[in-house]
């Protein structure tokens, strides 16, 4: 059913919109996965990376970063001053662990939609020790490239693109295409997390929706190195299955063992076990996408 797309997938050639729509509509889900898995393997072999993240909510400062390889501030700041103060405190508590934080869309709003103010704000956050913006929700930004440029002008990295909300398949594909376009324009993103971070409570996305989205992201965003899936958001089972649908990077593995998995295994052991059980080789990385030996 999708045989004619196999050479594109294996060769790292991006699918067109029409082709992506065909994949999204394909009733043979296993063939969709097979195609995306081929694209993943061609790019990454059998390696699947993961990162342990300590997420900092609100204006909190962590007392212990556990096994974090990234400390991520997931807050909507009231001002750049407040954000800078929080970054300073979190960086001080995080030692050598890279600190990322905030949504590019929130920061852009905070700057009143002014790119120069955004760059200045980014500079203040970078001076306080912030390495990268944590989220680049392409669904919330009219011109995500300009926002990325301003953030980088201010010294912040933008490693990955994300999606906040995208309920329909067409909306998800729009987001995927925006990221593919950004990359073609030279924005050098390291990863894309195509699954929406916020789901509709009444009509949540389905397993089919999610793995198809992962697969199409892999096939359309051929120039983006990694397709991410969020371990905490999706749960271990779906996150693992996503590997068979083109994901090669598992984001947001807990940094602190809450004993939620019992005393017999820690989160890093569990994610490694899950990756191996998906016939792949686990590799830990940090918040700057550097492999940890």
């Amino acid at each position: 059913m999708l045989n004619d797309l196999e050479s594109k997938a294996a060769g790292g050639e991006p699918l067109s919109r029409l082709e992506a729509e065909r994949v999204l509509a394909c009733p043979d889900l296993v063939s969709v996965g097979s195609l995306a898995e081929r694209a993943r393997s061609a790019r990454h072999g059998d390696v699947v990376t993961y990162v342990q993240v300590l997420t900092v909510e609100g204006d909190a400062v962590p007392a212990d970063v556990g096994d974090a390889r990234e400390v991520r501030i997931a807050a909507r700041p009231e001002s750049f001053d407040a954000a800078g103060a929080q970054v300073g405190a979190v960086v001080a508590a995080s030692g050598t662990v890279p600190v990322t934080g905030f949504s590019a869309a929130d920061l852009f709003e905070l700057a009143g939609g002014d790119l120069q103010r955004l760059a200045a704000g980014a500079r203040r956050l970078n001076d306080a020790g912030l390495v990268a913006v944590a989220f680049l929700p392409v669904d919330r930004l009219d011109a995500p490239g300009e926002v990325v440029r301003a953030l980088r002008d201010g010294g912040l990295q933008v490693f990955r693109a994300t999606v906040d909300r995208a309920g329909t398949a067409a909306e998800r594909l729009d987001c995927i295409e925006r990221v593919a376009k950004l990359q073609v324009e030279g924005f050098a993103l390291r990863a894309f997390a195509p699954l929406p971070r916020f789901d509709e409570a009444e009509v949540p996305s389905s397993g089919y929706d999610d793995v198809r989205t992962i697969a199409v992201a892999r096939l359309v965003c051929a120039a983006v190195p990694s397709i991410q899936v969020d371990w905490t958001l999706c749960g271990p089972k779906l996150a693992q299955v996503a590997i068979a649908y083109g994901a090669d990077d598992i984001d947001n593995v807990p940094a602190i063992d809450t004993l939620g998995l019992g005393r017999r295994r820690r989160p890093d052991e569990d994610v490694a076990r899950q990756i191996v059980a998906a016939f792949a080789a686990p590799a830990a990385r940090d918040g700057c996408f550097e492999r940890i030996p």
Binding site: L29, S206, G207, Y208, V211, G235
Partner: peptide, 10 residues
């Protein structure tokens, strides 16, 4: 879970 449960159909 509902999502992997649904994938069972494939």
């Amino acid at each position: 879970g509902g999502k992997v449960g649904q994938l069972s159909l494939a």
